[in-house]
């Protein structure tokens, strides 16, 4: 019980890092998607290169670059800032790919019909293609969010005191390592169950909203 308490102290930071990184990732992904869809070869090449570089380098390396490597004058990022920022930009690259796939999953006829009806470009995005993209992206988005929840453990390597950090600290002082880490594993599994359920619920709800 004492062990559970010690580990649970890390829970809020795990959730915080996951949510903030997901928010940063979602926002930063939008301009990247625009770049990936651009007809300008240079912009396309730059966005493609950015996505490949962000995904090709492990998240730990990004966190270490931000935490140990970057200093603006005498100011350094705190562990939490570096962790959220690093996981956020890596998430942006993965989410950009997810959004790009979801946009191309919207049938071509929808585009053609909206231009035939003379809709404004902004209206097409907000009322026609946007909602359909969101629906197509939800399963992959929630799967990614569950992955990000687990990846938030990487922030423990730069000293963010989330679940893994707290459990390895407790394991060291109590000497009951196996149980501690199994409990930590159990917490992650329990946390990802409601996310999975939410994903299924949203998917069903949005499927109903679209008449086929």
């Amino acid at each position: 019980m004492e062990m559970l308490k010690a580990i649970a102290i890390g829970l809020p930071l795990t959730v915080l890092v996951t949510i903030l990184a997901l928010m940063i990732g979602t926002v930063v992904a939008l301009p990247i998607v625009a770049g990936l869809r651009s007809r300008n070869r240079l912009i396309w090449l730059m966005s493609r290169g950015l996505v490949d570089l962000l995904r090709g380098i492990p998240p730990v390396v990004w966190l270490f670059i931000l935490y140990y490597g970057i200093s603006i004058g005498a100011v350094r990022l705190s562990a939490l800032q570096a962790g959220v920022l690093g996981l956020g930009v890596v998430a942006a690259a993965y989410l950009a790919e997810i959004f790009r796939g979801a946009i191309s999953a919207v049938p071509k006829g929808q585009w053609e019909a909206s231009s035939a009806l003379g809709f404004h470009r902004a209206t097409v995005w907000t009322r026609i293609v946007g909602p359909q993209t969101a629906r197509a992206a939800i399963p992959a988005y929630t799967t990614f969010a569950i992955g990000l929840l687990k990846d938030s453990s990487i922030a423990s390597t730069i000293g963010v005191s989330e679940i893994v950090f707290m459990s390895s600290q407790y394991a060291r002082q109590s000497g009951s390592g196996i149980l501690v880490f199994f409990v930590a594993a159990g917490i992650y599994i329990l946390l990802s169950v409601p996310l999975g359920l939410l994903s299924r619920h949203l998917d069903i709800k949005m499927r109903k909203a679209v008449a086929r």
Partner: peptide, 21 residues
């Protein structure tokens, strides 16, 4: 389920710091 549900970092520490117990 444990292999997919738990972060790789937890499994690594389980094997290295946990198994000696």
């Amino acid at each position: 389920e444990v292999g997919r549900g738990a972060p790789a970092l937890v499994l690594l520490q389980l094997m290295y710091y946990g198994l000696p117990n």
